[in-house]
Computed example of a mutant assay.
Amino acid sequence: MAWSRPVGWILDHLVYRTTVRGRSNVPAAGPVIFAGNHISFLDGPVMFGAAPRPMHILVKQEMFTGVLGRVLTASGQLAVDRSGGRAALQRAKSILDAGHCVGILPEGTRGSGDAASINNGVAWLALNSGATVIPVAILGTRTGGEHLNAVPRPGRRLHVSFGGALTVSRRPGETGRASMDRVGTEIRAALSRHVQDTIRSSGQQLPDADAPNPPQTAVAGTPADHHLRKVQ
Rank of each mutant, 00 (worst) to 15 (best):
A220Q: 11
V151D: 04
T132G: 01
P154D: 14
A74S: 14
V168N: 11
L72S: 13
E107S: 04
A79T: 07
V219Y: 12
V136Y: 00
H194A: 13
A92Q: 07
R157T: 10
F34P: 02
V183E: 12
G140N: 06
L11V: 14
I95F: 04
S179Q: 04
M1N: 11
V26G: 05
L228K: 01
M63T: 04
L14K: 10
V67I: 11
R82A: 05
S83T: 12
N120A: 04
G108V: 12
T167K: 05
R153M: 06
A220I: 06
V32S: 04
A224P: 12
G76Y: 08
A220C: 14
F34G: 02
R200S: 06
H13R: 10
R182T: 03
H147F: 00
H194P: 13
N119Y: 15
A88E: 11
R53K: 03
T217Q: 14
H56R: 14
P27G: 12
E62C: 02
P214E: 00
P214L: 00
I10Y: 13
G173M: 03
R70A: 11
A190K: 05
R91V: 09
L89E: 04
A126L: 02
A178M: 07
M180V: 07
A224G: 15
R177I: 02
V133H: 03
Q205N: 13
V80Y: 12
T222R: 11
A79E: 08
L191A: 08
Q196P: 06
G8R: 00
R53E: 03
P45A: 02
L78Y: 11
P223V: 14
G140F: 03
G103A: 03
G176N: 14
W3M: 12
R177A: 08
S40A: 07
G103R: 04
P223Y: 07
A123P: 01
I118N: 01
P52S: 08
V80M: 10
G84I: 01
G66V: 08
M180C: 09
A98D: 15
G66H: 01
P223T: 13
G173P: 00
A209G: 07
R53N: 03
L14W: 15
A2P: 07
L89D: 06
P135N: 01
V195H: 07
I187A: 09
G69P: 09
Q196I: 09
A150F: 09
A126G: 07
I138D: 08
N149S: 08
I118S: 03
V133K: 05
E186V: 09
G36C: 11
T18D: 15
L166C: 08
H194E: 14
D197W: 04
I39A: 15
D225C: 11
P31M: 10
H194R: 15
Q77W: 06
R5D: 07
L14I: 12
L42P: 11
G121R: 06
N25H: 11
L42N: 05
S112V: 01
D43A: 12
Q204N: 11
K230A: 12
R70T: 09
Q232Y: 13
R86Y: 07
I33D: 00
